[in-house]
Design a protein around this nucleic acid. Structure first.
Length: 293
DNA sequence: AAGTGAACCTGAAGGC
DNA sequence: TGCCTTCAGGTTCACT
C-alpha cells in the first residue's frame, strides 16, 4: 500500500505515541523480514528514548537517544497499529495482559509514552518486503543516500523536473517511478499524476522538455506535487480516528481518477475516453488514451 | 550507462 | 468445496 503519502500518514499517526516515548522492551517474533534484524537490535533499543520520528521518501526514520537511527520500510504490505494502554501506574490494566497478536505481527514495541501511559506499537507485514535497520553516524545510510528530490514542498518545479528527465529514453512512467530522480512516488500516484498532467505514461521521458523547460514540465511538476499533497491531506483527515477498530494506521479510502479504473469513463469533463490498463516493465499502468498525450 | 525483467513472499480474488 | 492461476501499492539484482 504504502507510497509516500501513506508513509507520511503512518508517521503522523505514530508521532504522538512514539515521539519522546521510552522503549520499555522490544519483541521480534522471527529472525528476519526482508533482511535479518541486526544482531543487537533489541539490546540497542531497550530502555532508550525515541527523540523524533521522520520520513525520507517511503522510509520511516526514528532518532534513538544516544544511539543509532532506526530506518524502517513498509515494503508492499507493512503496517503499524497502536494498542493504547492505561496509566502507567494503574495496576491490572490491559498492559498486564498478554495481548493477542495476529498472524504476521513481527515486531512489538512496548512504550512508556510522554504522557505517562503505556502503549504497544505493533508492526505487521504478511509479505515481509519491509525491514528495520540501523543507520550509524552522520552519513546517510546507503539505502537513503541515492534518493532523489521529495515531491513535497516546492523544490520540485518545472525546471528541476525538466533537468531530471532530459535525455531519458525510458517511458515517462518508469522515470517517475525511479526513486533516484523523484523519491516517494509509487505505482498509484504516478498514474494519477500523469492523468492530472494530461501526459501519456508511454511518452519517452526526455520528450517532456526536450530543450527548454516548457509548459509540459511545469504542468507535470504541478500535477505531481498536488497529487501528493492531496493524498497526504486525505490521510491526515483519516487520522482523527486512528485508534479506530484495530488501530491500524495509514489505510484510508482513496478515490482515484485512473488507478484500478480500467474500462470506466475518464473523469475529465467532456473527454469521453475510457480508462485503459497497460503493462509497463511488468507493472500495471492506468491512463486515458484520449486526454493523455 | 541505461533500461528491462525476474526474484523476493504471502494472501486475495477469480475461473473451472 | 477445492484447486489452480493471476495479481498486488516496493526494491534489488542480473542481464542485455
Amino acid at each position: 500500500m504504502p507510497e509516500l503519502p501513506e508513509v507520511e500518514t503512518v508517521r503522523r499517526g505514530l508521532q504522538p505515541v512514539m515521539e519522546g516515548a521510552r522503549i520499555l522492551s522490544v519483541e521480534i517474533r522471527r529472525p528476519d523480514l526482508r533482511f535479518p534484524f541486526p544482531p543487537d537490535f533489541v539490546a540497542r533499543l531497550t530502555g532508550k528514548r525515541i527523540l523524533s520520528l521522520g520520513r525520507r521518501a517511503k522510509y520511516l526514520t526514528a532518532e534513538i537517544e544516544g544511539g543509532p537511527q532506526l530506518i524502517c520500510h513498509l515494503g508492499m504490505s507493512g503496517s503499524f497499529r497502536i494498542e493504547e494502554g492505561g496509566a502507567e501506574t494503574t495496576p491490572g490494566d490491559f498492559h498486564h495482559e498478554r495481548s493477542k497478536l495476529a498472524a504476521h505481527d513481527h515486531v512489538v514495541f512496548h512504550l512508556a509514552t510522554p504522557k505517562g501511559r503505556k502503549s504497544k506499537v505493533v508492526f505487521n507485514d504478511p509479505r515481509r518486503f519491509g525491514f528495520m535497520l540501523f543507520s550509524e553516524g552522520p552519513e546517510p545510510h546507503p539505502m537513503l543516500a541515492d534518493l532523489g528530490v521529495e515531491p513535497t514542498g516546492n523544490s520540485l518545479d518545472g525546471r528541476l523536473l525538466a533537468d531530471l528527465l532530459r535525455g531519458r529514453k525510458t517511458p515517462l512512467k518508469a522515470a517517475l517511478l525511479d526513486q533516484t530522480l523523484i523519491a516517494g512516488l509509487g505505482n498509484i500516484y504516478v498514474s494519477e499524476a500523469l492523468w492530472r498532467a494530461g501526459l501519456s505514461p508511454r511518452r519517452l521521458a526526455g520528450t517532456v522538455a526536450p530543450r527548454k523547460v516548457g509548459e509540459r514540465a511545469e504542468r507535470l511538476a504541478t500535477a505531481i506535487r498536488s497529487v501528493i499533497a492531496d493524498a497526504i491531506a486525505a490521510g491526515g483527515s483519516s487520522l482523527r480516528d486512528y485508534v479506530h477498530a484495530d488501530g491500524s494506521l495509514g489505510y484510508f479510502q482513496h478515490s482515484f481518477s485512473v488507478y484500478d479504473r480500467e474500462g470506466e469513463p475518464c473523469r475529465k469533463p467532456r473527454c469521453g475516453g475510457t480508462i485503459t490498463r497497460i503493462v509497463q516493465s511488468g507493472r500495471s499502468t492506468f491512463y486515458c488514451p484520449v486526454c493523455q498525450r
